[in-house]
Nucleic acid binder design. Structure first.
Lengths: 160, 160
DNA sequence: CTATACTCGGACAGAATGAGTCCGAGTAGC
DNA sequence: GCTACTCGGACTCATTCTGTCCGAGTATAG
């Protein structure tokens, strides 16, 4: 089980978008991270479809965060990119084979699925406890506050 | 992100193996669950490689649990089938592009990766808190104690 | 008002991983 | 010593993920 690499890109993009009030084109985000701009566009589209970022078309268009960074959780981003479905899917094995449990006895989920889903809930809860604002603060603390302002000026300027 | 379906099969097989002291062939486990015996064999091989079950060859061979069901956790099974690596992989995006963080400044992991891995740890911790014995107990409570003993007699008898 | 240049958006191939199958090596029993 | 049954690894196919492309739409500049 491997998570889509696009999640990492999307998270970094959200952190960067924190530093800009004006729309940022996908091409600029791609160049900043040195990744394929075509593929990054796909991830940004997923974020836009999930309502996390808003797309502005036209000459000076791009992407902007729709909400405050403090109200966007990592779970929101992961669900947008990686899909909302559960990682563990129960195929109701207990209802198959010679010792199949009758369907009307399956009012509660399979114990195996219950345990797996409980673990997933713990994972989602941990993701929901961290916001993009938290990440931006940590990046500030690690790279120094001058990093994000430097990126901000580079984003708004026409340099490339 | 979708977990390998083999995890579900492996967990159910471990629960079933709880009910038998003698080796159970892969073909029998496959018939009991009505799944492909060839593919189930692959999952059982993974469990054997991880040391969770022991394979006995020969005419009356099969698989047996190596440890007590109470000392085999769901995390053990998931790691055996789905691989031990982290689901989120950090490609060190921060060290790329025009604003790359210098490598000697990257003593601590990227804040993004830290948050994602913390969530994974919560997930693993929840998985490690549940054992195969717990699952077997729950199955007993759900399907009634007669179910597992019925399966036990079916496994040991030559029926098929 | 028109033309333009720049943006996003969805439709289109290639690569990697997982699902499923098969046959050969080895061992316990007769 | 032979047979029959078991596991083990090598092989093929499907699905998903990765990566790329071109067309639709819009704010800007003239």
């Amino acid at each position: 089980m491997k998570m889509s690499g696009g999640v990492e890109w999307a998270l970094h993009c959200c952190v960067v978008l924190t530093a800009s009030n004006t729309p940022v084109p996908a091409a600029k985000l791609a160049e900043l991270h040195d990744v394929s701009s075509s593929y990054l566009a796909k991830q940004l589209q997923s974020l836009a479809r999930a309502g996390l970022i808003h797309s502005v078309q036209g000459k000076s268009g791009g992407y902007v965060l729709t909400r405050a960074p403090g109200s966007i959780t990592l779970l929101d981003v992961v669900r947008a990119i990686d899909g909302p479905g559960p990682t563990f899917v129960c195929t109701e094995i207990r209802q198959r084979g010679p010792f199949a449990t009758p369907a009307d006895a399956c009012t509660t989920p399979c114990p195996v699925a219950r345990a797996m889903w409980a673990a997933e809930d713990a994972w989602r809860q941990a993701l929901a406890a961290v916001t993009i604002a938290d990440l931006a603060r940590d990046v500030d603390a690690n790279s120094g506050p001058e990093a994000l302002v430097g990126i901000q000026t580079w984003l708004t300027s026409g340099a490339g």
